[in-house]
């Protein structure tokens, strides 16, 4: 196996983790937007994610772009097998993007309330779909030896994907609610705290159900020897510890630390998924079809090298100006009108 391909597998997980940590909270804020009451409150909520959500979303393109550029067979099999959910996610992303940016230019009325529904539906569906996709990947997807999808859309619904989806929905809402606690004050903050109170129970419960379901539903080739791997125990323990810290910090009224601990939780969960998969990347649920692996999916050594140079030059800048932008808009959120 080309060691650069392994580096890229790690980077893929890192990009996904960045996406979950960063876009995660604005997806959560978008989902919880259903409960925002006054116009002022709505503007404050959207103002809290307004300057940064677009940049956050680019990490998704980074993760998908990495699959496209480095592991084309995985990219092709994953997206064509998840065809219908992928288009629902794309539709959700467009709705969300347009709704968030356009509602400030509109007067109150039918179109504006439709856009508000779009923000909730679009964000909520993406939040669900990420766990749904994760469950499907670990379960194995129905593609044949030519990477062509087999079987219907309904085959994608099974206990692991559905529970995984609900768990991720709950997590992103928790993450979003924690963000609102950090970024708002007064009445709005009180309400955000109530969301956290519910979600810090709901998410761990759903996570536990997901974990139990996984033991039965994860593709058998992946589970072989897993419980003995340090790659399994280390991220699992870290995830539990981070989640414990998140709950602890929210109980002791340290919202920023709780928010950061949420991020660590989801990053550890992404790492856990990656460790369970490695060296495979995408198992097939069809009998007798070998999984796509890091080794058999990576592009040529030349392309791996070129891409690594690109990432090495580019990503540090991205991180630098992302940090800078969060620093600029630190403090309590204001009206999102511009």
């Amino acid at each position: 196996m080309d060691s650069l391909a392994v580096v890229w597998f790690v980077l893929e997980a890192v990009f996904l983790a960045f996406y979950a940590v960063l876009d995660g909270f604005d997806l959560g804020v978008g989902t919880l937007f259903a409960f925002a009451k006054t116009e002022e409150e709505k503007r404050t909520w959207l103002g809290s994610i307004g300057p940064v959500w677009n940049g956050n979303e680019v990490w998704a393109i980074g993760a998908v772009g990495t699959l496209l550029a480095v592991f084309p067979p995985v990219y092709a099999a994953l997206l064509s097998t998840l065809y219908v959910p992928v288009y629902l996610v794309l539709a959700s992303l467009i709705i969300r993007a347009v709704a968030i940016e356009y509602r400030t230019s509109l007067r109150d009325g039918f179109v504006k309330s439709l856009l508000d529904v779009g923000i909730v539906g679009g964000s909520g569906f993406v939040a669900f779909a990420l766990g749904f996709a994760g469950g499907n990947i670990l379960h194995g997807l129905p593609f044949n030896g030519n990477l062509a999808p087999q079987g219907s859309f309904l085959a994608l619904f099974h206990p692991l994907s559905v529970i995984g989806g609900l768990a991720s929905l709950a997590f992103f809402c928790l993450h979003g609610a924690s963000w609102l606690v950090v970024k708002t004050e007064g009445e709005t903050q009180k309400r955000a705290k109530r969301f956290v109170k519910v979600l810090r129970v709901a998410f761990p419960a759903l996570l536990l159900v997901t974990a139990v379901t996984s033991a039965f539903a994860v593709d058998s080739s992946l589970l072989h020897g897993v419980p003995g791997k340090p790659g399994f125990w280390i991220p699992a323990v870290l995830a539990v510890a981070a989640l414990g810290l998140s709950i602890g910090f929210s109980l002791t009224e340290k919202p920023l630390f709780s928010f950061i601990a949420n991020g660590a939780t989801v990053a550890a969960l992404v790492a856990l998924g990656a460790c369970i998969l490695f060296p495979a990347m995408l198992p097939s649920s069809l009998p007798g079809i070998a999984a796509l692996t890091v080794a058999n999916s990576a592009v040529s050594h030349t392309a791996l090298t070129v891409n690594l140079i690109t990432a090495t030059i580019g990503v540090p800048f991205v991180i630098a100006y992302t940090v800078f932008s969060y620093f600029l808009f630190r403090g309590k959120a204001t009206d999102g009108h511009y």
Partner: peptide, 22 residues
């Protein structure tokens, strides 16, 4: 994608992040 991918990745890394963040 061995070829095309190595053009699209820089688009994400150098362009999409830059334009969206700023």
């Amino acid at each position: 994608n061995d070829v095309i991918g190595s053009f699209l990745l820089p688009e994400v890394v150098f362009a999409f992040f830059l334009e969206s963040t700023f």
